[in-house]
Structure formats: C-alpha cells, structure tokens
Design a protein around this nucleic acid. Sequence first.
DNA 1: GCCGATTAAGTAAGCAGCTTAAATAAACGT
DNA 2: ACGTTTATTTAAGCTGCTTACTTAATCGGC
Lengths: 162, 162
Amino acid sequence: MDRERLVDEVLILLPALGRELGRPVPLEMEEELRGEISRRGLPVGVQVSPGHIQVLIALARGPRSVGQIADSLGVSRPAATQLVDRLEEHGMVHRRPDPADRRVHLVDYVPGMHEVARKIMGVRRRQLNAALDGLNDKEALAFLKGLKAITEALGEMPGEEN
Amino acid sequence: MDRERLVDEVLILLPALGRELGRPVPLEMEEELRGEISRRGLPVGVQVSPGHIQVLIALARGPRSVGQIADSLGVSRPAATQLVDRLEEHGMVHRRPDPADRRVHLVDYVPGMHEVARKIMGVRRRQLNAALDGLNDKEALAFLKGLKAITEALGEMPGEEN
DNA sequence: GCCGATTAAGTAAGCAGCTTAAATAAACGT
DNA sequence: ACGTTTATTTAAGCTGCTTACTTAATCGGC
C-alpha cells in the first residue's frame, strides 16, 4: 500500500475514532467494579466520560489544582471546573483550598477513591489491550509513535508537565 | 517499554486526540484553497468540521442518500441530515430526489465542488502526511493497523460499505 | 385499486462538552 | 494601602450528537 492510500485510510478512520472516543464508558458492565462502587455508596450507573477519566489519571500522582488539570487535559479552565464539578457530584473527588494560597482549589480523590479510579481506568485499559492484542511489540511501538505524532500535529500538544 | 506502559500512554493520549479531532479545520489558512473558494462564491471563513469532511469523502464516489451517509459515518439519521443541511447552506452539496424512489434524497456535490472537496480534504491530508513523516513504511502500516483495531474495538465499526 | 405496514428523511427537544467573556476573590508589589 | 495580577467560577452560547416523533412515499396482500 502506498503512502497516499494509507493516509487516506487514516483520514477516513480518524473522525470515526474521534466519535467513539467521545462516548462515555459505561461502568456498570464491569462486575468487579460495580461491587467496589456500590460498596462505597457511589451512584450506580454513572457514566464516566473520557475527560473524567483523564482527570482521574491526572490525580493519580497526587492532588492537583483546577488550573493544572485544565492544562494537563488541554482544555480551558471553565471546562476543567465543569469536569471536577461532575466528579465531585458523584463523590469521586473533592476540592479543598490550598493552605499556601487560598485562591487555588486542590482537587484530590475522596478517601479510598484512588483504588476505584484505578479500576475505572482499568476498563478502558482492558479495551485497549484487547484492541492492540493483534499487534506485536514492534507494531505496538510504531502505533504509539504515530499516535503521538498525529496528536502533536493536530494541536499544540497539551499535558506535558502533568 | 513494556506493554502496560505502552497502553497507559495510549490511554493518556487518546482523549487529547479525540478533542483535537473534534475541532473544525479552518479553511481560510490555505492560500490556494481560498482562491478556489471565493472564485465559486462560497462563503469565505467557513469552518469545516471533521463530520463535514467525512461527508465530502463519502460523496467522492458518487451521490449518496442521507441514510447511506449516516451509515457510512456511523451516526444517526438526524445527525446526517444536519451535516448535509450545513453543507447545503454553504453551497457545497445539494439534494435531489431519487427518481427511482422519491422518498430518498440523493446528496451530491454542487457542480465543480468535487474539485474543492478534494482540496479541502487535502488540508487534513497534508497535516497527516506531515505528522506521519517521521514513520517509515513499516511503522506507518503498523500505525494504521493499530488505528483500525482501536476504532473497531471502541464501537461497532461503521462505514464498511461506503 | 385500496389500506395497513414499512422505510427515508426531517423536525423537535434535550444533553454533553467545549468555548469566550465577565465576575469574584485572594495574593502580590511598590 | 491600592492597583494589578492570578485562580477559579459563573454565565451565555455553540456544535454535534442523541432519542422520539412526524411526514411522506413505497410496497404487499387482498
């Protein structure tokens, strides 16, 4: 297959992928996770969008300010506020003022949520793992490389410092 | 890099990519294209979203019904209606009743639009080409493979028959 | 030839996720 | 102490999608 045809295929594939990526991940399908969720009194049937998952990932290495979250997701501040709002409503994270600078609101997992967050990520991770199963290591690496290249090319790459 | 880390990186990358993919492609940046557009009296400064580009691609092989467009994009009928509406407003496509079955509206390029459509696609194509420039042929192929796998895994793959 | 069922497209209403602009509140610098 | 900057939130608005419903045309059995 020559390069031009290849690019064309990618061109056709990308919007579909984008659409799929936007769809929320239904959590309730995952048995193990459901147990974990109801055990903690989290709302069952919650749908977690990719943005929310990204926030959860961003928090994995410790509390972050709303602004940091916005930057690491590559979205505007209000968008980050909104994402955090939603996660807070669902009782997954909470805000607390930074003692050092009371303007900043530090967002962190609710106690014990770290664990659940990891499992939620696991849902997506499993999907990806399954999808990439047909690729050998070299191919997988090449895939990652291309993905990075395209993401970078299509906007000035956010989330570097997270 | 082990597989787990690789999947994690993909996991982090994907939502950002999804967001970028959703952004409209500003056409007016492309000199050559702008000439072509104003020459035909198309609105200058029009932004074409990925969905619109997909419709234009779908039409490349001839007129299509709204339903076919919806299927090939993997969206609902009303969504396709909406996309076609917009393209029609911009004078890029037009509907005409199918003589064989007057329920179906065939969507086709406005005369001469085929050319412009190809140039519009060229904008994205050039971005992709540039992005994938750093990959050799083997890698590019692997990338495509992974992309297909993920797109398929993340939803039941639309657009097969287009 | 008529009538109910099916099919294509469009309309309506609503939601999620983003944007920019403006408001609020705290901290900083001179 | 006061004006400026910085962090966040609020408000308003847009796009792209969804589902449920309407309208219009075709089809199939009698």
